[in-house]
């Protein structure tokens, strides 16, 4: 089949930055055929050019966590309901469990690891901490990514708009109120920083 961008040929290129021979399938033992056909992907993750080899079947979530050790994004439901695996892809929040790693070719990916600049927490992260907007914390990275995207798009969201934008992020601990208040607090801080 003719497909200029991606074919299941073994990777020819050598990575200039960070090449990863993914071996999870091997370690799992029983699925040897996965080893044979790796796809080479060039992408940008948190501003850094990254190249990796992956199986067609691997989700972006699997690749980020198991392959690149970016374990900030979490596997919750693994079917697109909970939002714990939210990352930014080409400036839009997506469920990384519902994206194939090969689809990251030429894309810009931003994970929760890229949000704190030089060890300085982003106001959204700071407000989640101060507002105790988490208990177990599994959903938090997904919330942080979505909230940051929301406040960039809509710096003064109403409570209704916040709840609507966060409908795809589920939290089973806090009951959401502290999360909403923390988003409102972050919106204020970001506004003050601007003025």
């Amino acid at each position: 089949m003719s497909s200029p961008q991606h074919t299941n040929t073994p990777a020819q290129k050598h990575s200039s930055t960070r090449t990863l021979q993914h071996t999870t399938a091997l370690q799992r033992g029983n699925e040897e055929r996965f080893v044979t056909e790796k796809i080479h992907v060039s992408t940008t993750i948190n501003g850094e050019a990254v190249e990796f080899l992956c199986d067609a079947r691997q989700s972006l979530l699997e690749l980020l966590r198991d392959g690149l050790s970016l374990t900030g994004c979490k596997e919750g439901c693994n079917n697109g309901n909970c939002g714990a695996c939210t990352v930014m892809m080409n400036h839009l929040p997506v469920n990384s469990c519902c994206v194939l790693a090969v689809e990251a070719e030429d894309a810009e990916i931003e994970t929760v690891e890229g949000i704190a600049a030089q060890g300085q927490l982003h106001p959204v992260q700071q407000c989640f901490l101060q507002g105790a907007a988490l208990q177990c914390g599994i959903c938090t990275p997904g919330f942080i990514v979505t909230v940051k995207a929301l406040l960039e798009q809509n710096p003064h969201p109403t409570e209704q708009e916040i709840r609507f934008a966060l409908a795809g992020n589920l939290c089973r601990c806090t009951g959401y109120d502290k999360i909403i208040r923390s988003v409102q607090a972050a919106a204020e801080i970001l506004q003050e920083a601007k003025s």
């Binding site: 497909s3 961008q5 991606h6 029983n30 194939l100």
Partner: peptide
């Protein structure tokens, strides 16, 4: 019964233009 039961079966991927 075994790790990886949630993993997708592998397949070929093509992105025609």
């Amino acid at each position: 019964t075994g790790a990886g039961a949630f993993a997708l079966q592998n397949f070929q991927y093509a992105a025609p233009t």
